[in-house]
Design a protein around this nucleic acid. Structure first.
Lengths: 155, 155
DNA sequence: GTTCCTGGACGAATTTCATTCGATGGATGC
DNA sequence: GCATCCATCGAATGAAATTCGTCCAGGAAC
């Protein structure tokens, strides 16, 4: 709730680059004693500014060499259907990200698959066959880059 | 390069959920001595299966309450242009993710903005004004969920 | 201007953890 | 049966996380 000062932002940027940075090294980097630095990190966690720490895995090395974006257009936007299909999409093992959108496309789902056959079955069984789904549009992902959120250290 | 066994997969899943899990706790979870567990994690890192560890930040709490997906269609797909515009898109501070796609849309860019005015200026200054860009299509992101890659512990 | 109060920050002490290394055991191949 | 290899273990050591009492700076009230 307190506005983030320069030190907070430096901490956030550092942990965004390397979440396993030791508290000691982080403290040195931001110019604080380890204890003070730890207190800040904990505050950022409890305030929900840091939502979690995740290892980034290489999908290809796990036999998932094919990625796709599947745009989903629903038949009706009435009540339950929206939430249900959203939960369904998020629950698929192949799903790595779900966007709920405004516009003609209601959902955009980023999926990882072993191969084209896997993708074909997935689209049919988990997308097209759902009654809420009006139509889908699948695009192959050639490359995907994820970056951190901007942390401009203005303050 | 060695195929991942059940323990590897358990490690990956655990670190995907919480990258700051201590090695000791991780070892206990997978039923290995801390030293053995550490050796495995290091192997997974050097083999590139674990690509990094990132803190997940709440964009809204940093004053970036508006998210959008911007589909980009290029004029020509010739040589340099493709790489250049890709680098440009990735270099924008507002950019959180870039998909390079096959299909009518060449790039899909996930951006975070302070407000609609910020988004308006961004689309004009960093997208529409680019000579390689033929047209863009901006969709508001109502919600966004990121999940881990599937780690089925079959083996 | 003085006093009180609060919020960080510090640093020593303690506990817990990471990391190294030699030894052990089981599997494989000969 | 024997040698080899690889992963695991567990103790030892070194380092780090975490706690806690203290201190200082800034602000508010008077």
């Amino acid at each position: 709730m307190t506005p983030l000062d320069r030190i907070d932002r430096t901490i956030l940027e550092a942990l965004q680059n390397n979440a396993r940075l030791s508290n000691k090294a982080l403290a040195a980097q931001v110019g604080l004693a380890p204890s003070s630095c730890l207190a800040r990190v904990k505050r950022l966690e409890t305030e929900g500014i840091i939502q979690g720490y995740r290892a980034e895995l290489n999908a290809r090395s796990m036999g998932l060499g094919l990625q796709a974006l599947i745009g989903v257009q629903l038949r009706l936007h009435v009540g339950e259907a929206f939430g249900n299909i959203g939960d369904h999409l998020r629950s698929l093992p192949e799903t790595v990200a779900v966007y709920c959108l405004g516009g003609t496309t209601d959902f955009l789902v980023h999926v990882v698959c072993r191969d084209t056959e896997h993708l074909r079955v997935l689209t049919i069984q988990s997308f097209t066959s759902r009654p809420e789904v009006s139509r889908i549009e699948t695009s192959l992902v050639f490359s995907f880059t994820r970056l951190g959120v901007p942390v401009d250290k203005g303050a």
